[in-house]
């Protein structure tokens, strides 16, 4: 039933195909990319070449192939998105389940903290928390250097869990009211057993949805950070979608349109596709729709 509803969401099916193709391109980067990340397309003069046969999407300021760089960039961005989404969803689901079930002080504090974070402008919190993370020396072993990909993943995991925790908490609270949990409790099942057996499986739908949306959240977040110059550094021949989009800013006034258009559209396509998938998942797993009509 849920699967049928998902498949009937046409945009989501198209999105799945797009993301599938992208993933394939990215995994097979050594074959699909035409040049290395930092490799020049041709001997100078080679910077700011418009799209042509030896550089399909043009080249950047130091003559690197935008097409190849996009493939490598998307690879890093998808990695950031997936890794931080997985971490934050796991963390959030656990915290949310405990808060929803235990209630009390823990729950109150959780709600206050997340309220505070959600009320602040996202970029401000993001930048401040980023600096705080980087400013605590004892966190170094966990976070790595401030401009590393690892640091970004940790940062977005910290941001991502709160939304998920709230969703799962709400889910748990509403499930708690339902009879079957009451029934289980009447039979004398322990709390942990109830959580494991009934509550988490019933939250799988919303958690899946949250997972897809946090992937987008982290990818866009990385781009935002990079756009304002706080992203991961190109360093060891790596790039990311954020870095490429950030470079687009400088290309606008000078009119090197390809440097702005291609990375931006890539980001739009990824964000839209994953959002459509999440939206369809939400519809497909919404228990309210299960009753037909």
């Amino acid at each position: 039933m849920a699967f049928r509803r998902f498949v009937s969401h046409k945009a989501a099916v198209v999105s799945c195909i797009i993301i599938g193709i992208l993933a394939l391109f990215v995994i097979l980067a050594p074959f699909t990319a035409r040049y290395g990340v930092n490799q020049s397309v041709q001997a100078p003069p080679n910077s700011f070449l418009s799209p042509r046969s030896n550089a399909w999407l043009g080249t950047d300021d130091i003559g690197r192939d935008l097409y190849s760089r996009l493939i490598y960039g998307v690879r890093v961005s998808l990695l950031i998105g997936l890794a931080s989404a997985l971490i934050s969803v796991t963390l959030g689901a656990l915290v949310g389940a405990v808060a929803g079930f235990r209630g009390g002080k823990f729950d109150d504090i959780l709600m206050r903290v997340t309220d505070l974070f959600l009320a602040f402008p996202f970029l401000v919190t993001l930048l401040v928390v980023r600096n705080v993370l980087g400013g605590l020396p004892w966190l170094k072993p966990l976070t790595g250097e401030m401009n590393s990909v690892r640091f970004i993943i940790v940062l977005f995991s910290i941001f991502g869990w709160m939304g998920v925790a709230r969703i799962v908490r709400g889910q748990v609270l509403s499930l708690k009211e339902r009879e079957f949990v009451e029934a289980a409790r009447a039979v004398g099942a322990s709390r942990r057993y109830i959580i494991a057996r009934h509550l988490l499986p019933n939250s799988v739908g919303p958690i899946m949805v949250a997972l897809t949306f946090s992937v987008v959240g982290a990818i866009i977040g990385e781009s935002t950070l990079a756009f304002f110059g706080y992203g991961p550094q190109a360093g060891d021949g790596a790039t990311s979608l954020g870095i490429l989009v950030g470079a687009a800013k400088g290309a606008v006034q000078t009119g090197f349109w390809w440097l702005a258009v291609f990375p931006c559209f890539m980001l739009i396509i990824i964000a839209l596709s994953i959002n459509f998938i999440g939206d369809a998942l939400r519809d497909a797993t919404d228990p309210r729709l299960d009753r037909g009509v």
Binding site: V216, V245, V252, Q253, V261, I268, N275
Partner: peptide
């Protein structure tokens, strides 16, 4: 849905490119 999926800095770059520069 498309509108909320596109981050503002992306629409800013593209609109700027179109309406201001080109």
């Amino acid at each position: 849905f498309v509108g909320i999926s596109i981050p503002p800095f992306i629409s800013a770059i593209l609109l700027q490119l179109l309406f201001a520069v080109y």
